[in-house]
Simulated scan of single mutants.
Amino acid sequence: MHTMWKGSISFGLVNIPIKLHAATEDKDISLRTLHKECHSPIKYEKVCPICDKEVGKDDIVRAYEYTKGKFVVLPDEELEKLKKENEDKAVEIIDFVKIEEIDPIYFNRSYYMSPNEGGVKAYALLRKALETSGKVGLAKIIIRSKEQLAVIRVLENTLLMETIHYPDEVRSTVDVPNIPAEEQVTKKELDTAILLIDQLTTDFDPDKYHDEYRTALMNLIESKKSGQKTVTSKMKAPQTSNVTDLMAALQASIDKTKPEGTRQKKTVRKRATPKKMQA
């Protein structure tokens, strides 16, 4: 499993060297966009709308737009220095709470935590302490240049870290449009709804749920492959030139630039003058 972050996490005076591994993966089927005429993949280029030319990586700087059309440019050196200063800090568990107190809307990404060299015993200690107390740890960590608030809990004998949103990143429900006010619901309507819920209530088994659209899309792709309903992009032919003409042009250029005395002269064979007949 790929290691995406190395560091340490601490609670109190206990320091645990750890590695982070992505706990989930995106299994969306990625579709390419092709030119309808020749089925070649479309390229997306970075173009400056003012200079009307393609911009390379070395010509790009990062900036913050503090008002429409006005920016503060942030040099890469300063951003890297700021990132390094924060990433070097150990991740510290700042609080312990009950996970039931955290609404699911706050949860973002999940990462497995494994002990790095010398961290096995401390890792086992934190795991056991969390299991026994029934609590989860709240910590801060820098991932991909962003400070994250995270929950550390136990999942099947493994420490799991789940990043969570800060409160100001969660939009307020009062901003949601067209929410109906309290409506008068009859007892019969409510009883019927509760009955339906009871009938559909079951234990959560994640293995029973599948991405039916992804399965159908893959079946469609496979059926087209087996039926040879595929297309091939037209490769752009490399630029070629007429070798004969090119060599002739080169030779002509060489001949033209030779000094006058070294050029080959056509020799004209003169007819021999007949000797006068002796009388």
Score class of each variant (00 low, 15 high):
K89T: 01
E77Y: 08
K89Q: 11
D76L: 11
E87P: 01
L79M: 15
K84R: 13
E77P: 06
L79N: 06
E100W: 00
I99T: 02
E78L: 09
E92D: 07
N108K: 13
K98S: 07
F107C: 12
I102Y: 06
D103T: 07
K98R: 11
I93F: 04
E80S: 10
L82F: 06
N108C: 07
E77H: 11
V91N: 04
D95T: 06
I99R: 08
E101I: 03
N86P: 03
K84D: 05
L79Q: 10
Y106P: 04
D103W: 04
P104H: 02
K84V: 03
D95M: 12
K98A: 01
I102S: 09
E100M: 07
I99S: 06
I94F: 10
I102N: 10
D103N: 10
F96K: 04
K89I: 01
I102V: 15
E87N: 13
I105V: 12
L82D: 05
E100Q: 08
F107P: 03
K98F: 02
E80M: 10
A90C: 06
D103L: 05
I94L: 14
L82A: 15
D88Q: 14
K89P: 00
P104L: 04
E92I: 12
L79T: 06
V97Y: 05
I102R: 09
E77W: 06
L79V: 11
F107E: 09
K83P: 00
V97A: 12
Y106M: 09
E85F: 02
E85Q: 12
I105E: 04
D88A: 13
E100V: 09
K89V: 01
A90D: 14
D103I: 03
N108E: 13
V97I: 15
K83T: 06
F96S: 02
E77Q: 14
D88F: 00
F107L: 14
E80W: 00
I93D: 03
A90P: 15
K89G: 00
E92G: 02
D88E: 15
Y106Q: 08
K83N: 08
E80Q: 13
I105P: 02
V97W: 06
I94V: 15
E78V: 05
V97K: 13
D88Y: 00
L79S: 05
L82G: 14
E80N: 12
N108P: 00
D103Q: 05
I105C: 02
V91W: 04
K84Q: 11
F107V: 08
